[in-house]
Amino acid sequence: MPGVFNSFVYKYIRPSKAKRSFEYANRLIDCGISTPFPIAYLENSSAFGLKSSYYISLHIDYDFEFRELIHKPLFPERDKILKQFAEFTFKLHENNVNFLDHSPGNTLITKDETDYNFYLIDLNRMRFETMTFDKRMHNFRRLWLSKTMVKVIAKMYAELYNKTYQDTHDAMLKHSRSFQLKINSKKLRRSGRKMRFKS
């Protein structure tokens, strides 16, 4: 349930998270980008503001989340999945989608006979805007990519974007390292350990 301030905001100023998720899901599908099919959203409100909201979509029987590729370096066909994920993210960017929560738990993956399919979830934080090269590389930062993962994804993305591998790799690595350092800095200061970027 939102606080008093957010309750007022989501009632009178800004669409609720549920409404945004529903609208964004429809917009993604119109672009040919997969997400669990949106069914409806519900809002409970009073004159004072929004009390609660719910987004309803079809259930996806997915095989695994993107996060498994991070924790399991020997995951079967890992490089193939990463290359296809690069293609999926490139399609997002080409459709001017800046998915602000592009993180390990927000991409569900299914496998068919020959390929992998990617479905975005948790859609309420998204911008539709022109995606410059730097914005595209910045959008990878929350995925917690290792050096090896950056190499594979950057190579495929560079080919799709007609950019040099080195420029793509360096920019993607820079944003990934910066994000990981920022998230871990307090924890590392307390423990006294040095930061190591995963290989």
Rank of each mutant, 00 (worst) to 15 (best):
M1W: 08
P2C: 01
P2N: 07
G3P: 15
N6K: 13
N6F: 14
S7C: 02
S7N: 04
Y12A: 03
Y12P: 00
I13T: 04
P15R: 02
S16P: 03
S21I: 04
E23F: 00
E23V: 00
A25H: 05
N26K: 11
F37N: 09
F37V: 06
P38I: 08
I39D: 03
I39L: 12
A40M: 07
Y41W: 10
N44T: 07
S45R: 09
A47R: 09
F48Y: 07
L58E: 15
L58N: 13
H59Q: 07
Y62W: 03
E65T: 12
R67C: 12
R67S: 14
L69N: 03
I70W: 04
F75V: 07
R78Q: 12
K80T: 15
K83H: 12
T89A: 15
T89V: 15
F90G: 02
F90M: 02
K91N: 15
H93A: 12
N95I: 12
N96R: 14
N98Y: 15
L100H: 01
H102G: 01
S103H: 13
N106M: 09
K111S: 05
E113W: 01
Y119L: 06
N124F: 02
M126L: 13
F128I: 02
F128Q: 01
M131Y: 08
T132D: 11
D134Y: 00
M137Q: 02
N139R: 02
F140G: 08
R141W: 04
R142S: 00
W144A: 09
T148L: 05
M149N: 11
I153C: 07
I153P: 10
T168G: 01
D170H: 09
M172V: 07
K174Y: 13
H175M: 02
K182H: 09
I183R: 10
L188Q: 03
R189I: 08
R190Y: 08
R190Q: 11
M195Y: 14
